[in-house]
Nucleic acid binder design. Sequence first.
DNA 1: GTGAAAGCGCTAACAC
DNA 2: GTGTTAGCGCTTTCAC
Lengths: 336, 336
Amino acid sequence: MSGTRPTPSSVTSLDVAKLAGVSRSAVSRAFTPGASISDKTNKKVQKAASELGYRVNLVARGLNKRRTDLVGMIAAGMNNPFRSEQIDALAKRLVREGFRPMLFCIDGDMDEERLLSILLNYQVSGVVITSDAPPKEICEECARMQVPLVLVGRGDALPYVDLINGDDAKGGRLAAEALFAAGRRRFLVLAPVKPVHSVSARILAFNKRASELGLEAEQFTLNSHDYESGRDAAVKIAKRRDDKLGIFCPTDVCALGLLDALRSQHGIRVPHDISLIGYDDIPQAEWVFANLTTVKQSVEEFARVTVDLLQERIKNPSADPKSEIIDVKLISRGTV
Amino acid sequence: MSGTRPTPSSVTSLDVAKLAGVSRSAVSRAFTPGASISDKTNKKVQKAASELGYRVNLVARGLNKRRTDLVGMIAAGMNNPFRSEQIDALAKRLVREGFRPMLFCIDGDMDEERLLSILLNYQVSGVVITSDAPPKEICEECARMQVPLVLVGRGDALPYVDLINGDDAKGGRLAAEALFAAGRRRFLVLAPVKPVHSVSARILAFNKRASELGLEAEQFTLNSHDYESGRDAAVKIAKRRDDKLGIFCPTDVCALGLLDALRSQHGIRVPHDISLIGYDDIPQAEWVFANLTTVKQSVEEFARVTVDLLQERIKNPSADPKSEIIDVKLISRGTV
DNA sequence: GTGAAAGCGCTAACAC
DNA sequence: GTGTTAGCGCTTTCAC
């Protein structure tokens, strides 16, 4: 269109300024929403800019403002559909709100601490940790650096950080009540040896409600909390012939493993012989073979509140840490 | 430890230099692997740095080097487990190789073009697009900006960009042969109205191999290629009572929808009545209810080759575009 | 091996 | 509303 142009990768605001016959500040203003600039200059700048193929260098801007719009997401267990949905929703929400998500997945020696350290070097505007159990030191590190930190699914009130959790207390209660309402009088709960906070909270609430109902929930310990451990648990569980058995499995992936094996390999009729309720409402819970009754947590809601929290803290860094609870609800399908 | 320290967020290389009694360059060198610096100065600097809680500002460094180590990942359809596995593996690989992944998910009006534009403003070291069908203009834009671009799962040889694909030709062939070997003599393939490149390639190869075997594969058109459309297709497919029917469904999620509905809702015995083969080998394909025979693509392999491609191009920006093919293999389970 | 000086591309006062 | 000046924190010649 316009003869030979300079290598576009090196077009700077000064180049645009020259071509437009204005100053660099004018160019800067033209690319800063809400800056005071006349319509006329703005037009001139825009024209020159697009002619040269100019794009603002956000790294330079970031250096200046001492803050990029980068937000780090630290995640673990992306093979759990709930987690990947969560990350997907969060990434979308962040972008819509003007942030730029970075994704760091826990992997071997790349633990929360190392990953966070990298993020801090990038002058991120915030960090969201959805993996479980971030060490305390890293929270302090963020506080020192004045970097907003949001922990999702980690209950304890750590100082300096904002928290967001599903309403695990309600979820556990709902599960117990659903099983009870279905006439189940013998409760079993599948708990991993080393449960993450939210899982413990659900179990605790389940047990509590159970005992309020005059029942004592029996605990069944699993190595992990994934499909495989649920499936493997089926062998033992299928052998038991308790009447009116109601099982709470505080993670859908795990519940699906159990359910799948119970039905396909052990000929157990669910809910005729056994009732089962999961947690999360992952897409697979609705699959025909499963039709799993579960407790739903909305990933969009999680994302929305997380980003809100981030924005509030950026506005007001010294505000007291907040702790938000996301509502949950029972999704009644066919396993209770 | 050391009395009052300055706000750690503002510790600069100059502060460290002063405390260590060296110049800023020395500090810079101490934090640049491979820079020529004596052991003694290095130690002094490290000590001063950790005392002050110094961390290099990667934004400033990026401005200087005119290149961050940020790599943009543009993705769509994270609800497909294959995609989320792919992103997970890629993110991990990138980090291990010293890059910093950013995750942009296609979402409404946030299309490839807009997202890429943002990425370019961040002076990213590279971009990986796993969503399907990035417009041609954006490839040119990357080329102009000298930003390496890797397209995964997009076959056409666009100029300037590196390509990486699964071996769809082999995969389609494998599927046809597996069905044939199982005695199936009537082939059906489930194709979405608007297939993405890789899916078309698989179908093409399947059809070709079928006709070599003396069979003509019948096409069954779906609106989409997810679990729901597979499940919905079951109604019509269950009605047909062709003998020896073998179905190829070029995406596991879709195959699982069909399989699940066929077995659970229509009482079809697979593979007794119908044989079915999927594609991708997502974790759910191995679930008990499914036990789906499928064609596996390794996400780790994808990730490895993608990052290799990126690194090569960074080293040699003007090299000819490459096109890599990832091997696939048949995973025989119980549906064929 | 080390330091001084000169930028990387941008925004933020400050005058006008 | 606009231009001028002075940095943001780092790396990088270039002398020494």
